[in-house]
Every structure is written in C-alpha cells, then in structure tokens.
C-alpha cells in the first residue's frame, strides 16, 4: 500500500462505512475512490493530513445520583491530542446542574473545541 496504489480507508462519517482508496497524485492532488458521497473525499483528505476524531467520555460530578456525566466535544479534535484531552478532562469536577448541550469546558487541550454535556444533570 504505497502512495501510488493509495491508502485503504474506511469513511467514518456515516454508518455506510464506505471503503475508500485515497491516492496522492504526482501533482499533489488527492484522488479518492469508493465514496458514495462528497463527505468521503473530505474525510480522506483529513485522514491523510491531520486525522481528527470527536471524543466522548464521562467527567466526575459531585452528585451521588449521577456520579459521572457523559460529555462530548462539539467538534473534532486532532487524533494525536486525544491523550492530552482525556488527561485534561480527568481533573474536571461538575458541581452544578447542567442541561444537555451546555458547555463543560472550553478550548479542550488548546484545540479551540469545547466540551459539552451530553445529558441533563
């Protein structure tokens, strides 16, 4: 699987899970095959240059009825920063009631992405 043959990827944008083949042409243009929609192309581009993922986890609360609150990033963050992001979230403690969608933490791991509550608390 060198660059001429292209890279095999699976698009994770929707449940279709298209099998993509992404090849970088000599002109530096990316050619993607196997995608059923436009989003596959964008995904492949990112995947080859700066792969990103959304992150979901739980953070500690001070409520005994729900000691952990599910949260997620409100966008995707670089894959390589997921470790740092988790470490940052590890120290978060929620002490007030939140509604689903409210921001729990801003600028996660310096990415500019916020972390939001994924459930009411």
């Amino acid at each position: 699987m060198n660059s001429k043959e292209g890279k095999e990827l699976i698009c994770i944008v929707c449940p279709n899970g298209c099998r993509l083949n992404a090849a970088m042409g000599e002109d530096g243009q990316l050619s993607v095959t196997g995608n059923k929609c436009k989003r596959g192309e964008k995904f492949a581009q990112a995947e080859l240059t700066n792969p990103t993922r959304s992150l979901t986890t739980t953070v500690r609360t001070s409520f005994s009825t729900m000691p952990w609150l599910p949260v997620r990033t409100d966008g995707e963050i670089p894959k390589k920063l997921i470790g740092d992001a988790l470490k940052e979230l590890q120290s978060v403690l929620i002490e007030k009631n939140l509604r689903c969608g409210e921001v729990v933490l801003t600028d996660l791991a310096g990415t500019g992405i916020n972390v939001i509550a994924a459930s009411d608390l």
């Binding site: 979901t56 994924a118 459930s119």
Partner: peptide, 10 residues
C-alpha cells in the same frame, strides 16, 4: 452525530 445519551435526552 449525537451521543446515545443526547439522543435519549432529546
């Protein structure tokens, strides 16, 4: 792309 909890919360 919601999380399962968010989906239920809606």
């Amino acid at each position: 792309k919601l999380s399962g909890c968010e989906y239920a919360t809606r």
